[in-house]
Design a protein around this nucleic acid. Structure first.
Length: 563
RNA sequence: GUCCCAGUAGCUCAGCUGGAUAGAGCAACAGCCUUCUAAGCUGUGGGUCGGGAGUUCGAAUCUCUCCUGGGACGCCA
């Protein structure tokens, strides 16, 4: 759904140019000028110069003369461009009416109706701390799910807990060697991390430990009682720790399921692959060659007979397709697993599953520390819980200074602190690596969630002071200084569609910053309550409030009314 | 060694399906609260868009090459 005036402009220009240049082509070429003085829309005529054998300036002039519509206030040729200035009152009226007709529906789409999207997200590993790295998967996945819903899709958020694999064999070995039961009861994850780190240190000197870890995993897979009991215990304590964090973040899942769930289903997958004649033995292991696809072989069964994550992911994908009949499944997983997901996809394709095309790896950059990957093995991770606590503390301190009589301070501090952490992650393009900086995360000025929340609180305050009632909305605004706000406001539906289709929540983050900035400027320069146009302006402010709140909510961030 | 991703202001980043003078935020400096929440607003300084070549009327954006950083590359996930 493109904004109305762009459609109209494209239609008129296409009509002027004739068959050779269809409307969609024109639509694509039309741009939004960087500079305000160049108007609201622009059509560059350079591409036409060659075929029409005319000076672009001349073409622009000819086109400009013929464009006419109430939505266009002024059409002006300029340096080879047709610059279009919109009729501000007309546009504002149109948009505000649309919003007030059904506020909750503004910006939503229908194209996902009747389809479902599965999201594989968060996926922390048991016995390990919830790191900043897992935060990315969690908040990106959550935002994408919200966006998908807004586009009409049904969503299934799955937290695919890492509770299986050789690493847990290592952990068992490590615990039995160095573990301290009391410490473990006291602070389970800390103790488990400690022995895990210990293990990797020792393994550098004595590589046979790695083999020991593998054999403990083998025991786990063979249902050895000691192994299973310990493993289950590790899992329980870990899950309850994670639950605390999800509560803080305000994120829920439709399904929380460990990888181990697929244990007894993997033989079926292996059998199927064998049946299709894909399996091959190599160095004692079972593999699938992907030479034709230009990929290294995919390991399906290790030489000691145990399975591997590719086998589990294949099994899970098949199971999910059966259960949910998804339109697509989004794996919100770090980019270091790109090769793995390419392999999984190709194996499924080779096995004849056409829906494999709809597996999408939504990769994201790593959380770096001093330019390097954080590693649990070396005990070099920053814990999310700490970061969240710090942020909430900082927010509480700010409230103390700026608004000491605020009601419900504790809740607001949490909303602001947590919002800051989530937004700090979502505002960047997800593909970029992020250098971890607690300091930056605790900044509440500029491009931050608190900036947006603050703008939202200001709108609320205005509406309260002006006794605004949505029933009495007046949508015909004259104020010229409100124009940047109006223009930004109406981009919302398009932003939602783009953010979803490109799987890029940062598009929404950037849009909200733009909206808040324009609102804050407007606020600083224009008297609202008590002005001749106060009812009109409050109507606009109300629309701003709705959009800030809804946009933040799509990102998984709350917007308090006062802060 | 092979493949993938990135390199834009002191720092963090936007802009990248080619378009009009390369934009924000932080930091620095200078202003703005007897007036709707100063977590805000206004202004100043700051850039060979990693280097080079090419395609084009036009390149931060596309192609090639080199440099730098990071990641992945069968028995971890």
């Amino acid at each position: 759904m493109l904004v109305m005036e762009k459609q109209i402009l494209a239609l008129q220009i296409a009509h002027i140019l004739g068959e050779e240049y269809p409307r969609n082509w024109v639509l694509n070429v039309i741009e939004i000028p960087k500079q305000e003085s160049h108007g609201d829309l622009a059509f560059p005529c350079f591409p036409l110069a060659k075929t029409l054998r005319k000076n672009p300036n001349l073409i622009a002039e000819e086109i400009a003369q013929q464009i006419k519509h109430p939505v266009f206030h002024k059409v002006k040729p300029m340096g080879g461009y047709v610059n279009v200035f919109l009729d501000q009152t007309f546009v504002a009226n149109h948009m505000l009416q649309q919003i007030f007709q059904d506020p909750a529906a503004y910006g939503s789409h229908e194209f996902g109706k009747g389809k479902s999207i599965v999201l594989d997200m968060s996926a922390p590993n048991i016995a390990k701390p919830f790191s900043m790295g897992h935060l990315r998967s969690t908040v990106i996945g959550n935002a994408l799910a919200n966006l998908a819903k807004k586009c009409g899709y049904e969503t299934v958020k799955i937290n695919y807990i890492g509770d299986y694999g050789t690493q847990f064999g290592k952990l068992l070995a490590a615990y039995l060697k160095w573990g301290n039961e009391e410490q473990l009861k006291e602070n389970p994850i800390q103790e488990l991390t400690r022995v895990y780190v210990e293990f990797h240190k020792a393994a550098e000197v004595d590589p046979s430990l790695i083999e020991e870890g593998r054999s403990w995993f083998k025991k786990l897979e063979d249902n050895d009682e000691e192994a299973v009991t310990l493993w289950k215990w590790f899992k329980d304590v870990s899950l309850s720790e994670f639950e605390k964090i999800y509560d803080l973040l305000g994120i829920e899942f439709d399904l929380t399921r460990g990888e181990a769930y697929y244990n007894n289903k993997m033989e079926g997958t292996i059998g199927l692959l064998k049946e299709k004649g894909l399996l091959e033995e190599s160095e004692g292991a079972q593999i699938i060659r992907l030479d034709e696809e230009g990929l290294p072989p995919c390991l399906i069964r290790k030489s000691n007979g145990t399975t591997i994550y590719a086998t589990r992911d294949l099994t899970a994908a098949i199971d999910r397709q059966r259960t949910y009949n998804f339109e697509e499944v989004l794996y919100v997983v770090g980019q270091e697993q790109t090769l793995h997901f390419q392999q999984v996809k190709q194996v499924l394709k080779k096995a004849g599953f056409q829906w494999a095309e709809n597996l999408k790896h939504i990769s994201f950059g790593m959380m770096l520390q001093d330019g390097k990957k954080m590693s649990t093995r070396q005990g070099k991770t920053v814990l999310l819980e700490q970061a969240l606590e710090e942020a909430i503390k900082q927010a509480a301190k700010n409230i103390e200074e700026k608004n000491p009589y605020l009601e419900d301070r504790h809740t607001v501090a949490q909303q602001v602190g947590v919002g800051a952490v989530i937004f700090h992650d979502l505002k960047h393009d997800r593909r970029n690596d992020v250098e971890f900086s607690l300091e930056e995360m605790l900044t509440f000025e500029g491009h931050t969630a608190p900036y947006l929340q603050y703008a939202h609180a200001r709108t609320t305050s205005l509406l309260e002071k002006g006794n605004f009632n949505p029933e009495e909305a007046v949508t015909s605004i004259q104020s010229e200084s409100a124009w940047p706000v109006i223009k930004t406001l109406r981009l919302f539906p398009e932003i939602i569609e783009k953010a979803f289709k490109e799987y890029d929540p940062s598009k929404m983050a950037k849009h909200l910053l733009e909206l808040a900035k324009n609102f804050n400027r407007f606020y600083a320069h224009t008297k609202i309550i008590g002005s001749d146009e106060s009812q009109e302006l409050l109507t606009l402010i109300y629309a701003v409030k709705l959009q800030l709140k809804e946009g933040l909510s799509l990102l998984g961030i709350e917007a308090p009314d006062h802060m």
